[in-house]
Nucleic acid binder design. Structure first.
Lengths: 194, 194
DNA sequence: ACCTGAACACCGTTCAAGT
DNA sequence: ACCTGAACACCGTTCAAGT
């Protein structure tokens, strides 16, 4: 429909770059403690800038969230490539799944944003999400080719399972995090048994 | 910590009851279209009452959500009892799980509220949630006693799986709802195979 | 090119005045 | 016992004025 979604860019001028970095650092801290709907005014004030400066660099909340989580998604993609080179395609997939669940639940509300991004091209994180989606799909295909995962499982279904696990983790309290067990149970359902 | 959570009560006076019902109807509609964080002012205005009247009946958003979903949870408990009387304990559990997932995802944000209520006694829906939790646990225990479900699955784990499925459904668009398949895959992981 | 902060809009929440 | 709506607070968002 509309044009390309706005992707935040690190400014070239020194003062702009300093503020950009300070806002991102404050945003990550705020998201982790208050979730994806943390107060933008609070973030600006923690970063020591006026609210207009935050909006100049990140015109929408989605752009700020995307910038704050870009590194993590890139790491996930890079790690998938390293894992794909390993000997055991099932172990590679499982290790990546565990890592993905942890990243998806970095802060409350993130997994919902990622799930929407996956299927909405109008979203800042859509491109990164698609790349990550492809990484996971590649690992899945390899594990299926080796007859270690049921052949009828699609990449979309894999991501529903991962997102569900991440959501459980996002809801968890330190004393009660069911996401590891959740993933374990899911794996029982998708791995092939001899 | 603090006293009992406030549970909304249907008033005795006719005008109060009329408003109470109108607010609930408007709230259900608003929650379904805008999620659990729908505008309260909009709900009051749709119900034809002043904002103060909404607050008089439902002093917190949680109280309004609880009142709007109380019937559904009661039905779920009642249905569990009927199912428990049936001949096949696995079928009973599965039927109830499917129904629970649908109810948990009545509107965006509900499953998160329910998940919190399950473990936070300070919440209006805690009592209802606990009753529902017991219903599910009973069906689970019966299916395990019949050797149809893995014996090491706990009720808390069952609810994590149900909540994850409901969350996937909550995110879904009409053309893409992966929750049925999600549940199917989960069932592969928890049923015992001969 | 970047920053500031006042200004406006919207919504949640409370409460004094009413019937 | 219940209703009304003004009042206050808080936050998102824009924009004119500045460097």
């Amino acid at each position: 429909m509309n044009g390309k979604p706005y992707i935040a860019q690190r400014p070239k001028r020194a003062d702009g770059r300093r503020n950009y970095d300070a806002i991102l650092a404050a945003a990550r801290k705020a998201f982790e403690s208050a979730g994806a709907d943390a107060s933008l005014e609070e973030i600006a004030s923690q970063a020591g800038v006026a609210i207009g400066t935050l909006y100049r660099h990140f015109p929408t909340r989605a752009a700020l969230v995307e910038a704050a989580t870009r590194d993590g998604l890139e790491n996930l993609v890079a790690h998938a490539e390293r894992l794909a080179a390993g000997p055991d395609p099932l172990e590679a997939l499982l290790a990546w799944m565990r890592e993905a669940v942890v990243h998806f639940s970095t802060f409350r509300g993130l997994v919902g944003i990622l799930a929407q991004s996956m299927y909405d091209e109008g979203t800042p994180s859509h491109t990164m999400c698609s790349a990550m989606h492809r990484s996971g799909a590649d690992l899945l295909r390899a594990a299926q080719a080796a007859d270690r995962v049921r052949p009828d499982l699609t990449p979309d279904e894999l991501f529903d399972l991962l997102s569900g696990a991440a959501w459980v983790r996002e809801q968890a309290t330190p004393d009660r995090d069911g996401s590891a067990r959740f993933l374990e149970l899911v794996l029982e359902g998708i791995t092939t048994r001899g």
